[in-house]
Amino acid sequence: MNCLIVEDNPATREFILDVIKDNFSEISCFSAGDLGEAENLFVKIHPELLVMDVNLPDGKSVDFLSKLCNQISAVHFKVIFITAFSDYAIDAIRLSAMDFLLKPISPVELIGAVNKSIDSLKKDVRYTELETFFYNLGQNQSAMGEKKIVLKTAENAHVLSIKQIYYASADNNYTAFILDYGEPLIVSQPLKYYDEKLGFLGFLRVHQSYLVNMDHVSLYDKRKESVLLTNGSQIPVSQSKKSTIMKFLNKQYL
Rank of each mutant, 00 (worst) to 15 (best):
E48I: 00
I111S: 05
Y220W: 15
D91G: 11
Y166D: 06
F134D: 04
V19F: 01
S243W: 01
H46N: 12
C69F: 00
V62H: 06
E48G: 07
G59M: 11
F77C: 04
R223E: 15
N136V: 10
T132D: 01
H46V: 02
S188W: 06
K148T: 02
G145H: 09
A38S: 12
I16V: 15
E37F: 03
T230D: 15
K222P: 03
A32G: 07
Y181L: 03
V187C: 15
I186G: 05
Y220L: 07
I20Q: 04
N9P: 01
I178G: 00
I178K: 12
D119Q: 14
M214V: 09
V62T: 15
V108T: 14
I82A: 09
E183I: 10
V75F: 01
K241Q: 14
G59K: 11
F42T: 03
S209Y: 05
Y253Q: 09
D8K: 13
E39T: 08
E109D: 15
Y181P: 00
S169E: 15
D63K: 07
R13V: 01
S169P: 00
Y210I: 10
Y253I: 12
T128Y: 02
K222N: 05
I45E: 01
N250T: 12
T153D: 11
F77I: 05
F177H: 08
R205V: 08
K247T: 14
P57F: 05
K192Q: 13
N40D: 04
F134G: 05
L137T: 00
M144Q: 13
D22H: 13
Y88D: 14
T175H: 11
L254A: 14
N231G: 09
D34R: 06
S240A: 15
V114P: 09
H46Q: 13
D53K: 03
V114G: 09
E183S: 14
A168Y: 08
M144T: 13
D34H: 10
L101E: 08
P104A: 13
G232F: 07
Y127V: 00
E225H: 08
A92C: 10
D124G: 12
S238M: 09
Y127L: 02
F200W: 06
S120G: 02
N213H: 08
V79F: 05
I20G: 05
L95E: 08
I82K: 00
H158P: 00
E196H: 13
F77E: 09
D195S: 12
F85H: 12
E7A: 03
E155R: 08
Y166H: 13
A170L: 04
I93Q: 02
L204T: 02
E37A: 10
